[in-house]
Simulated assay, not measured.
Amino acid sequence: MAGTVLIVDAANVVGSRPDGWWRDRVGAAERLLVALADHATRSGHPALAGDGPNQVVVVLEGQARGARDECGPGLTVVRAERDGDGCIVEQVRERAGQDVLVVTSDRELQGRVVAEGAQVQGAGWLLRQLDACGPAVDQR
């Protein structure tokens, strides 16, 4: 049986903490990617572990598409050409029949991906997972 595919709405997750991300959207996206990769290698959390059948897909949009994504296996970066939400829905559709968990606090997007068969967790859930594992090394 295939593992969990975690699809992360990066703009929503990054935007959920008022830490100055708006001054450096690329840097904020890169910090999220590093934290996800670091967490996957240290935690063994089934939805975040990048080894084996589990996969983490991070959707970047807007200026954040310029983020470097040299984070290792199990982490896929998708750069939305236009609409990040539409890209996330498409990522869910491409994985029909798989166990998909989308991380977003956007209520409209939550409804769209649930209609496609995905499960949903809010941005706070993911941030708590990352915080529990400790700070990732900042690779700036």
Score class of each variant (00 low, 15 high):
54 N>P: 00
42 R>F: 12
123 A>C: 06
115 A>M: 04
33 L>H: 11
100 V>C: 10
107 R>P: 08
96 A>Q: 15
81 E>A: 13
119 Q>P: 01
70 E>H: 15
38 D>Y: 15
115 A>Y: 10
53 P>D: 14
55 Q>M: 10
79 R>L: 09
39 H>W: 09
94 E>K: 02
128 R>F: 00
108 E>Y: 06
47 A>W: 03
92 V>F: 06
27 G>S: 06
57 V>M: 09
80 A>W: 07
95 R>N: 03
29 A>K: 13
109 L>S: 04
110 Q>R: 10
95 R>V: 02
75 L>W: 02
73 P>W: 11
33 L>C: 13
86 G>I: 00
132 A>R: 14
31 R>G: 01
91 Q>L: 01
24 D>T: 07
47 A>S: 13
63 Q>V: 14
68 R>V: 14
81 E>D: 14
69 D>W: 15
21 W>D: 09
39 H>S: 15
79 R>H: 11
28 A>G: 08
134 G>I: 11
53 P>I: 00
40 A>K: 03
67 A>H: 10
97 G>F: 01
121 Q>M: 12
34 V>D: 14
106 D>S: 04
101 L>I: 04
81 E>H: 15
48 L>K: 08
101 L>Y: 05
41 T>F: 07
123 A>V: 01
32 L>T: 04
125 W>L: 07
97 G>A: 05
81 E>P: 03
35 A>W: 14
68 R>N: 11
69 D>R: 13
136 A>W: 10
41 T>I: 08
99 D>R: 12
119 Q>I: 00
111 G>M: 05
100 V>S: 01
76 T>Q: 13
50 G>D: 07
124 G>A: 13
82 R>L: 09
23 R>S: 14
89 V>R: 07
80 A>I: 12
135 P>Y: 10
103 V>Q: 04
80 A>L: 10
52 G>I: 02
59 V>S: 01
84 G>H: 03
130 L>R: 08
61 E>I: 00
105 S>Q: 08
61 E>M: 14
58 V>G: 05
41 T>A: 15
108 E>P: 04
99 D>W: 05
57 V>P: 06
131 D>F: 06
128 R>W: 01
88 I>S: 09
118 A>M: 05
40 A>G: 15
54 N>W: 11
126 L>C: 09
99 D>S: 12
65 R>C: 13
115 A>N: 12
35 A>K: 03
34 V>I: 03
85 D>K: 09
86 G>Y: 05
110 Q>W: 03
136 A>Y: 05
82 R>S: 08
124 G>H: 07
57 V>T: 02
114 V>A: 14
43 S>M: 09
82 R>I: 03
73 P>S: 12
109 L>Q: 02
21 W>I: 11
136 A>M: 00
121 Q>P: 01
123 A>P: 04
125 W>I: 06
132 A>I: 00
113 V>S: 08
93 R>G: 05
70 E>D: 15
34 V>F: 13
89 V>E: 10
104 T>Q: 04
27 G>D: 11
86 G>P: 06
93 R>Q: 07
41 T>E: 15
25 R>D: 08
86 G>N: 06
71 C>G: 11
121 Q>T: 01
94 E>N: 04
69 D>G: 15
86 G>V: 02
94 E>V: 01
56 V>I: 05
79 R>A: 05
103 V>W: 00
122 G>M: 09
136 A>F: 08
26 V>W: 10
131 D>Q: 08
122 G>V: 05
